Amino acid sequence: MSDLPPLQEATLRDKVAVVTGAAQGIGRATALRLAAEGALVTCADIKDTRETVALAEKEGGQAVGVELDVRVAADWEAGIAGVLERHGRVDLLANVAGIVNMQSEDTVVGLTEEAWDNVLATDLKGIWLGMRAVIPSMIEAGGGRIVNISSLAALRGLPNLASYSAAKGGVIGLTQQAAFEYGPRNVLVNAIAPGTIDTPILGDITPEMKAANARAHIIDRLGLPEEIASMVAYLFREGRFVTGQVYPVDGGWSAKGNY
């Protein structure tokens, strides 16, 4: 007979969570959702996370901020060392931090090498470094859960997103390989592929472009960061028999036959 607790007892209370990209957008929404459910959240970002921490605390949650550049191994080592010093373990990692290419045209021919390197370093290398930093302590503690943010751009061809699509496709491959590698040690790794989400990353696009992105979904609007955060929380809280999977949270875009 299984010694796992009943499903209705699943909770995030007092789980130790690290969320990257927590200064804004999906990362902030995820940090706030996990804190609201009782997790002890470290809000990691290259930007200032004090506002996210204050919002979490205002709602009765527990959160701290740490400056962390996901591209830099030393930042990960120092950041996770701080979490282990405070709490003794890491139960949950939400790898959210990501960028789009704003340095050049993002096509195979139009990309600059600098732009390619920057996107791949943030959106793919950062995921790898994060998992590398937390998995040993998760194994030592008896397990953990990781959710990596990919994109619908990894699942279908979209215009002017060559480096982004490559990085987010790599996230899916890395997620599935890590799930296979570390699942036997009770480290469960999944990915989410959002559609177009209304975050600051869309700040420079026109209303017409936003409307076109909304129409690509079956649900005719942009997604909300909180809707991605809810799936992260579900996988962390309930997903004890789930690993190596990619979940589109995209308003039905991936089921639609046209862009």
Rank of each mutant, 00 (worst) to 15 (best):
E114F: 00
G142Y: 02
N118Y: 11
T112W: 12
K125M: 10
N160S: 10
V108T: 11
N118S: 15
S151I: 03
G98F: 13
K125N: 14
D123K: 02
T112V: 15
R145Q: 03
L124M: 06
G157R: 11
V109C: 12
I135R: 06
K125L: 11
S137W: 14
L158S: 03
N101L: 00
W116S: 08
V147A: 13
T112Y: 12
S104T: 10
E114L: 04
A133V: 10
P136F: 07
R132I: 02
K125G: 09
A162I: 01
K125W: 07
E105F: 04
E140C: 00
G126F: 05
G98H: 14
I99R: 11
V119P: 06
V96L: 15
E140T: 01
G157I: 09
W116T: 08
G110T: 09
A162H: 01
L120C: 15
V108I: 12
L158N: 03
L155S: 07
S150Q: 14
D117W: 03
D106S: 03
R145M: 01
A121C: 10
G142N: 03
A154N: 07
N101V: 01
N101I: 02
D123A: 02
S163I: 09
M131N: 15
G142P: 06
Q103P: 05
G130I: 12
G126A: 08
L152T: 04
D117L: 07
S137C: 15
A141P: 08
L158Y: 02
N101P: 02
S137F: 14
I99F: 07
L129D: 13
E113C: 11
V109K: 15
E113W: 11
R156K: 06
G144Y: 06
I127Q: 02
S150T: 14
I99V: 15
L124Y: 06
A121Q: 11
L152I: 05
L111N: 04
R132V: 04
D117F: 02
Q103N: 11
I149R: 12
I99E: 08
W116Q: 10
M138V: 00
L120R: 14
S104D: 07
I135S: 10
N160L: 05
K125D: 08
L155R: 14
R156I: 00
P159R: 09
N148H: 13
T122Q: 13
L161F: 03
K125R: 15
I139N: 04
L111F: 00
W116D: 09
